[in-house]
Design a protein around this nucleic acid. Structure first.
Length: 505
RNA sequence: GCGCCUGUGGAGGAGUCCGGUCGUCCUCAUCGCCCUGUCAAGGCGAAGAUCGCGGGAUCGAAGCCCGUCAGGCGCGCCA
């Protein structure tokens, strides 16, 4: 059927008779000579039809349209002087067609099948088979493949067995809500799909399977977010007789290798290490993006008894006043954008946000400028080191809300001010996550670990890049299914996710 | 569960604050004609839309008000 893929042809193939199969990406008709860009998964190559050299093929080419599937016979040749296309890996050559066979015609696609497509994701999901033809989507699939392959190559020599655990399990009472699968054999009972395969770890560890891993799907029936779908893939590593350093000695080289082999970027090891508390103090988040600065500073005691009464009240009530400096933020942001920062902070649950623009000569411009004492002005400038053109943003609220608002602000400002080095990777280990977390009305166990054994020595790793953690930058790229439509009853499926009694299997 | 935003020819957007000149415009796609070296080809032309849906105020609505549906982002939730 075919002798080569479209994307593999190079100068070395010149002179060869080839047969190619692929999709018509573009047709360029010059009235005489006509070009087709033929695409398959491996890439794109230019096909040229000359009316004199191959009249039949040239005539057939006039009928071709976008996304038709064709088989081309022809001869690979070096492109004429000056006609090479450096943007294509196959750009040094072209295929002079001698015949065309239409394998399938196609309707006009509803959106452009190229990386530059701007079609709404809903439309792309509706025509998933078209969307997946886009090179970007192919890259996503390939990236996932490369990551998985790298993991397997890395883990095997270290003595880890790759295991599989059941997909149909029983519900566990903690953590996320389970997806449920009704059982035909046990009417009225449900299987639960795993939120995380770690729930099966004790079984294997106690059984003496002291080093294993799995690349495994996790499913959580929780409200999705931009960076979080209902299902995702996790690398689950378990090891017995290990200290923290042993775990890190396995993971750090693996992650560094994944980044090197799939992104071509170097990651320095050992990774940074930080306590959970320090992370929250400095970044307001347990998954901070460390590719840029804008660390948070604390001002709570500076505003104790302040004439700016709303801040003074927060300080008196045990809240926190924290802030950050956006370098040249005052110079870059319009008044409208500044107002938007305040609205976004409120949208994230904080009482508000106070921005202070530092002007030349250290003068301050702010909606609350007249409430600030001289001591507070110098205190703010000294602690932040803010200079002319910088923008200081302060949030005063209960500590958790202050952190949420400033974490969001920090990310928004980094994007707005173009502070993110996209090709950089910054990992960090964090230690000592809390055993309990505060809720509005109670204290309850922190759900981040289902296993009391690891809770005492919590250990997590975070690599903040784009929206992902250690996974493709856009987690929606590979393998996502369209959201289920209809057939929903309220917010949750019919059934009982949290108790054990409904889960015989 | 809550908040904010969005919905305009096949795709993406402008127009909406401040009603009439708007089914007006831009880029891409589609169709036709021209064109023998382009590669997001180019030139000329054409076709294509009950402005998400329903109701209301108005002489008059894409625009204002109410409702509703769909989607996005964030909070809660979630590791």
């Amino acid at each position: 059927m075919r002798t080569h893929t479209c994307g593999e042809l190079r100068l070395a193939h010149a002179g060869e008779q080839v047969a190619l199969c692929g999709w018509v990406a573009h047709r360029r008709d010059h009235g005489g000579v006509t070009f087709i860009d033929l695409r398959d998964r491996e890439g794109v190559v230019q096909i040229v039809f000359h009316p004199e050299d191959a009249p039949a093929a040239h005539a057939a080419a006039q009928e071709l349209r976008g996304e038709w599937v064709v088989r081309i016979m022809g001869v690979v040749r070096e492109r004429p002087e000056g006609m090479a296309n450096a943007d294509l890996v196959t750009g040094a050559v072209e295929v002079a067609a001698t015949s065309v066979e239409v394998l399938n015609s196609a309707e006009t696609p509803p959106f452009v099948i190229e990386d530059r497509t701007e079609a709404d994701e809903l439309l792309r999901l509706e025509y998933r088979y078209l969307d997946l033809r886009r090179p970007e989507m192919t890259r996503g699939l390939r990236l996932r493949h490369e990551i998985n392959r790298t993991i397997r190559e890395h883990m095997d020599p270290l003595g880890f067995l790759e295991v599989e655990t059941p997909v149909l399990t029983t519900a566990t009472p903690e953590g996320a809500r389970d997806f449920l699968v009704p059982s035909r054999m046990f009417p009225g009972s449900f299987y639960a799909l795993p939120q995380s395969p770690q729930q099966l770890k004790q079984l294997l560890m106690v059984a003496g399977q002291d080093r294993y891993y799995q690349i495994v799907r996790c499913l959580r029936d929780e409200k999705p977010r931009a960076d979080r779908g209902l299902e995702f893939t996790q690398l689950d590593v378990e090891m017995s007789f290990a200290e923290e350093e042993d775990v890190m000695a396995v993971i750090e080289p693996l992650y560094a290798r994944i980044v090197r082999e799939t992104q071509g970027a170097d990651v320095s090891t050992p990774f940074r290490r930080m306590s959970y508390d320090e992370m929250l103090e400095r970044y307001g988040s347990d998954k901070p993006d460390l590719r840029y600065g804008m660390e948070l500073s604390e001002f709570t005691e500076l505003f104790e008894g302040s004439g700016f009464t709303s801040f003074a009240k927060v300080a008196a009530d045990g809240g926190a006043i924290k802030g950050l400096v956006a370098p040249q933020g005052a110079a870059a942001l319009s008044r409208k954008e500044l107002d938007k920062l305040v609205e976004d902070a409120k949208g994230r649950g904080a009482a508000g946000l106070v921005w202070i623009a530092v002007e030349d000569e250290g003068a301050l411009r702010s909606p609350v400028e007249k409430f600030l004492s001289d001591e507070e002005r110098t205190g703010i400038l000294e602690r932040t080191g803010a200079g002319a053109g910088d923008l200081v943003c302060l949030v005063a609220d209960r500590i958790d809300r202050t952190n949420v608002a400033l974490d969001g602000l920090r990310r928004d400002l980094a994007a707005r001010l173009d502070l993110i080095s996209e090709d950089r990777w910054e990992f960090v280990w964090y230690f000592e996550p809390p055993l309990f977390e505060w809720s509005d009305d109670e204290v309850h166990p922190d759900p981040r670990s289902a296993d009391p054994g690891t809770r005492l020595r919590g250990l997590g790793v975070v690599a903040r890049r784009d929206r992902g953690e250690v996974r493709p930058p856009d987690p929606r790229v590979p393998l996502r299914s369209p959201a289920p439509r209809g057939d929903r009853v309220g917010d949750r499926p019919v059934g009982h996710a949290d108790g054990r009694e409904g889960c015989d299997p």
